[in-house]
Amino acid sequence: MPQTVAVIDYGSGNLHSVAKAIEHAGSCRVLVTSDMNEIRSADRVVLPGVGAMGDCMHGLQDRGLDSVVLDFIQEKPLMGVCVGMQILTEFGEESSGVDALGVFPGQITQFSKSMKCPEGRPLKVPHMGWNELLQRPHPMWAGIGDRTRFYFVHSYRYADIKATCVAGTSHFGAPFVAALSRPNVFAVQFHPEKSHDAGIRLYRNFLTWDGTC
């Protein structure tokens, strides 16, 4: 019986590519679901997210899934993707401010408009495209070379690269956090499902990850 991966569906856009990429990564049963019991009984959970952080947080809360996520990570591995990473922090400054799940300390802030690209012109936000990722040691990076590029699309970021939970950083105007980790939780700002072979490899690593850092 293959393991089950629940991709949490809380009204946050397209989950088709996330589900397809996980299926492509290895032997597993992928459920795109908002059903609490299905999520609780899954072996692993992926928490995706696109769009506004506030909409994602409310989408999760309205379905009562915020506490399901917090309970799940006490026992089993969860992977957060893009806004799915952002809502695992404490707070986002998007809109008029969003209180988030607080799995990781720290907050999500906007790329500063005064930042410059290497050519000296103002940064183009959203940060959109393939950026290099500097890894910090973590089992989830197995088989993925340091400085491998991943696909990012976001206008807000986790800026505190000195936090102990940081598993990888990238650079856009200034360094920012590309991956966060703690026991049972690995969360990335980029989109593994859009990051070609490296992204598929990351999902494959997640399928065998024992939750340790």
């Binding site: 290497p118 950026n131 290099e132 500097l134 400085r147 990012f152």
Partner: peptide, 8 residues
């Protein structure tokens, strides 16, 4: 290092 220009 930084963001790559894209070819589409």
């Amino acid at each position: 290092m930084g963001l790559a220009k894209r070819i589409i």
